[in-house]
């Protein structure tokens, strides 16, 4: 039990009249790589927001990194949790460049009234180099392609030095080549840093092969979970998505 970093019990989350999570319980061990799949509206993103304290629990409890998740602990927790969402549509005129955007990841930990040091800027440059966008450091963030933007978002999360890494459909809305590169990068990062990682997707072709456990969500509940080998079966997936699903060839899902 000591190496349990996430422990959620009977979590219920609702947005006005819609119940997004209905009594979800989940335990995650330190260093695990978990894939979360399910149709749109299954509660996948809401589950991630419960973990980083942005989702308000109506019922149930969540313990993350040893802290009970509530409004008071939320900010403390988010400083220790990296979050990468899907590509957002941002204003190309925004007055901030890639290097500054990546440094934003560090601002929470730095705290109010503290300026980043030269060493911290050097950390940013090193991480930008690692994710392959060092050459774009001075470019306005709104001028990046979808794939480049996601690399910068991953760099931002790494600069944060998180203990948990939440990825919410990071490969949605980007081209297949960029998808493959982002997935390789995510797997490389997991191998190097051993962070507890939760990866949400609704597209089976973008499920990293490094996944140790697969959680299947449907209608705000954890419908089934197990090893990828036991879950990735046509019969199970067809029931999950409510439509006939054929398993993509291994080459298509293992990047």
């Amino acid at each position: 039990m000591d190496n349990m970093v996430i422990s959620i019990k009977d979590a219920v989350v609702s947005y006005r009249e819609d119940v997004a999570l209905q009594g979800v319980s989940l335990k995650v061990r330190k260093g695990e790589f978990i894939g979360i799949i399910g149709p749109n509206g299954a509660g996948k993103t809401t589950l991630l927001t419960v973990i980083n304290g942005l989702g308000k629990l109506v019922q149930g409890q969540a313990l993350v990194l040893g802290l009970p998740v509530n409004e008071r602990s939320g900010i403390k927790l988010r400083k220790r949790i990296g979050y990468v969402a899907q590509v957002e549509n941002i204003d190309p005129r925004l007055p901030i460049n890639v290097r500054e955007t990546v440094m934003v990841g560090r601002y929470g930990r730095l705290g109010l009234l503290h300026r980043p040091t030269q060493a911290q800027w050097e950390d940013v440059d090193r991480v930008l180099d690692m994710v392959g966008v060092a050459g774009l450091a001075q470019r306005p963030i709104g001028h990046l392609s979808g794939g480049e933007y996601q690399r910068a978002a991953i760099a931002r999360a790494l600069v944060q030095q998180p203990e948990i890494f939440l990825l919410d459909e990071p490969t949605a809305s980007i081209d297949p080549q960029a998808q493959r590169e982002i997935l390789s990068l995510i797997q490389l990062i997991h191998r190097e840093y051993h962070m507890t990682t939760l990866f949400v997707t609704h597209d089976l072709r973008t499920l990293p092969s490094i996944c140790q456990r697969l959680i299947l969500m449907k209608e705000g509940k954890i419908w089934q979970q197990g090893s990828p080998g036991s879950m990735l079966k046509e019969e199970i997936l067809s029931q999950l998505y409510g439509a006939p699903i054929s398993i993509p060839a291994k080459a298509e899902i293992a990047f």
Binding site: K79, I81, I96, T101, M103, V104, G105, Y107, G108, L112
Partner: peptide, 23 residues
């Protein structure tokens, strides 16, 4: 001047600022 970095984060990337623990 005092809160430049937080202001920059919030006006350019409000959701990100929230997610990294900036108030």
């Amino acid at each position: 001047v005092a809160f430049y970095k937080e202001i920059q984060a919030v006006i350019c990337h409000r959701q990100v600022a929230l997610a990294v623990g900036i108030p």
